[in-house]
């Protein structure tokens, strides 16, 4: 099966007064149609940069230095600005963090949906546009009346679902959602996640869910990608990740999770995330790693595929381990 999304050696840097910060470093990722992957990592690890880079929305002083983003056979990095404009939403859609607060308070939801369609299909009739918007609202389990409503008339969960409805208007192949539920309570969170799962299954789109709630990943994703200091340190299936995490950072992450059987045991990850301006040499995680070896301090580990199908960036695995 041909992957619907292929990210090859993607690199992004931010040029600041203090020097160059490598926010994404040789990131490789493949995703099949219908696959759901969760992207986790500490703040500043490059999760949102990765989403923006895939959308080609990195703004100066940031720059995509290298790499390709191939969606459904089209290399987005080689498109012109105009072509990219059309690819957004129709091939790859992005639901940004706090999207529910991005709705325009003074125009009706319907007008905002029609705006999005008009930008891509200017020749479509108004009635068709409305029909499509309502269909999209219905697929996120909102009533057609929402089309005529204003943002303030909706609850947080409903606003978030409107944003998903806008995201799927043009049936994109890849949907990126950046912390879509972080401001919502558990019940609404579950409703929103079930909505995402439902539309994803109907459309067969690939989903990238950015967040740091491992519980959410366990409940609704197929795979988990762990990011550390701009690199993907591990990509595994949810089952692998929760039963046998490979990278020492993933292991620490899993250990730090609260469990239901033992109350009151906390295990944080000691140390702090490194500054991207002054990354440690070798493996960026080595100062915090519990299984540090001599070569971790000097040799940069390469990303490799393990027999189990996981991809991991660590000297503990593969040749010479």
């Amino acid at each position: 099966m041909n992957p619907v999304l292929k990210v090859v050696d993607l690199e992004v840097s931010y040029y600041t007064d203090a020097g160059r910060a490598k926010a994404l470093d040789q990131v490789n990722l493949e995703l099949n149609a219908g696959e759901k992957i969760g992207l986790v990592g500490e703040s500043g690890s490059g999760k949102s940069t990765m989403a923006l880079a895939m959308m080609r929305m990195i703004k100066p002083p940031g720059r995509i230095e290298n790499g390709q983003v191939i969606v459904d056979g089209t290399n987005l990095t080689s498109l012109s600005e105009d072509e990219m404009l059309r690819a957004r939403l129709s091939k790859i859609a992005y639901i940004p963090q706090g999207a529910m607060n991005s709705l325009n308070p003074v125009t009706r939801i319907g007008a905002q949906m029609i705006d999005a369609i008009k930008a891509h299909e200017p020749t479509m009739s108004k009635a068709d546009m409305k029909a499509r918007s309502i269909k999209s609202l219905e697929s996120v389990e909102l009533k057609p009346e929402v089309f005529k409503m204003y943002a303030h008339e909706l609850s947080g969960g409903m606003k978030q679902r409107v944003c998903i409805a806008i995201g799927i208007l043009l049936e994109p192949k890849v949907i990126i959602a950046d912390e879509p539920t972080s401001a919502l309570d558990v019940v609404t969170q579950r409703q929103v996640m079930e909505t995402i799962n439902k539309v994803q299954a109907e459309m067969g789109a690939a989903v990238i869910l950015i967040g740091h709630d491992m519980g959410l990943m366990a409940q609704s994703m197929d795979k988990v990608a762990v990011m550390y200091a701009g690199r993907l340190v591990e990509v595994s299936t949810v089952k692998e990740m929760f039963t046998e995490p490979k990278h020492p950072y993933s292991q620490a992450l899993i250990r730090s999770l609260p469990k239901l059987d033992v109350r009151g045991v906390f295990q944080g990850i000691p140390g702090l995330a490194p500054s991207l301006l002054r990354l440690p040499t070798g493996c960026a995680f080595h100062p915090r790693c519990q299984e540090i070896m001599d070569k971790c301090k000097t040799v940069r580990p390469e990303n490799q595929m393990l027999a189990s199908g996981s991809r991991v960036t660590c000297h503990l695995y593969g040749e010479g381990a």
Partner: peptide, 25 residues
């Protein structure tokens, strides 16, 4: 019960419950 059933436990053996979510509108 609804709240507890909706907690996303980071545990594969404990899935999100099947309690139907009543509309909260």
């Amino acid at each position: 019960q609804l709240l507890v059933d909706s907690i996303p436990w980071p545990d594969l053996s404990r899935r999100w419950g099947q309690t139907d979510l009543e509309p909260s509108e």
